[in-house]
Design a protein around this nucleic acid. Sequence first.
RNA 1: GGCGCCAUAGUCUAUCGGUUAGGACGUCGCCCUUUCACGGCGAAGAGACGAGUUCGAUUCUCGUUGGCGCUACCA
Length: 493
Amino acid sequence: MPAPRVRFAPSPTGFLHVGGARTALFNWLFARGTGGVFVLRIEDTDESRERPEYRSEIFNALRWLGMDWDEGPNKGGAFGPYTQRERMHLYTEAKEKLRAGGFVYPCFCSSRFDEAADFQDDEGDDRKQALRCSCHELTEAEVADRIKASGTEPALRFRVDRTVSHDVSDLVRGEVSFPPGEVEDFIITKAGGAPLYNFACVVDDAQMQITHVIRGEEHLGNVPKQVLMYEALGYEPPQFAHLPILLNNDRKKLSKRDGATAVGDYRRLGYLPQALVNFLALLGWSAGGDKEIMKIDEMLALFDLDRVQKSGAVFDTVKLTWMNGEYLKVAKIDTLVDGVLELIELEPDVAELRTDRWHVTAICELLRERAKTLAEIIKANKYLFSKAYTLVWDSEAVQKRAGTPEALDRLRELSTTLRDCEEWDKVPLETALRALSERTGIKAGDYIQPLRVAVTGASVSPGIFETIEVLGRDVTLGRVNSFLSAHSTGSAV
RNA sequence: GGCGCCAUAGUCUAUCGGUUAGGACGUCGCCCUUUCACGGCGAAGAGACGAGUUCGAUUCUCGUUGGCGCUACCA
């Protein structure tokens, strides 16, 4: 059996969203796991909906996730070009072939989508009622007249046998049957000659010798039409595998309107690509047994279309976030630092932050065990990055644990103790504080809490000794002094 | 509306006729503790419904119900 050839064929009409990424991943996993070839093809037949920036965004997202392609734009291959806009001659050729074979007929109806009558479905949603076209009844003379009248090449409609049922086979869903009359004659090229998705897709998949078409379930209804075209064109149809739809929390198909859905969104939110990939792999597929956290190599070894699920899968960001936390714990420290450095440049107050690599490394070491995302490392812990001595101290925290006269007194004592500490390291720092506590008979916690509020601005932080070690002597002492002067003079709380 | 697909806890899933129906996220409780997390331990929580096949159904078949998807000269 020849090596499988699969493709991911996004349309540059939007950012790469997680559903598309999941489709790409399954194709990639299948190709890499079977010694096959992974092709990237850009389906840009609909110029009106396209934005130029999406193209590179899609490439970037794919690369960020670690999915490399063997053939595609900027890469080449034996079956190029790999963007449909550059393949028009192939569609023209195929179109002529279908016309010569009598598989298509010209259609002069205007767009059914624009013209169709509205109606409301059960939910009260506005829908479009499909119209039936009768252009196939036109005589040759009538056709000639209409072409002359319109002055442009007419749209072409593929003739479908309405008397038989159209049965297709799917690797995930098994046999699927469409009753006679269900599959309608469909447009393959618009008026003017531009090819449409179903047609271009088949021409390309056939010419690129794609053996397995792995894509979302929303395409299942296209299969009979596409199979018919393969046959008309004289090609052997590929195998199909339709993946379960990705759902939002309302169990509806995940769409751009559901908040963060673009791969780039997750990058900006501080997720690691490995975590996203791992999570995506588990949406509609499982390795069997209890295996969840998997390295790419393991996924590659285990991935199998046979284990793909049939029912839709909810994209649960809570679980994704947990998984990202797991990856944060085991990632190389430099990976974390690079990620934080990349994101911190986006912060509006980046000028007031300490972004030297040494300092950021210390912060990442401190937070990797507790943070779930890189963004959390930055946003929830600004005080670790900030150069400032004067913070916006949380008033409730101050009131409860640092602003009382007693707390302020302890803070003063502690400040002296800390200042006298020769080695600014968590161990001697803790030893010094506990010695102070021992001496005064005041609980260590009663020193710790005011200190925490003074240097972090809040009553919550990582271990206080690690925290002030990372902050460093100057910032720690500076903030304590600043806090003291801001709250001492009777004005406090 | 028509057609198609689907159906194990709130969510992702294991199970390929016989299990106390397993795991993970989340939730709750306890422990750890300088706060918050992390971590450890534990708990609650599922086979939509109804027939049929079978000695035996979550698993096979049919029906019901429900959910979703498609229904464009979009992809």
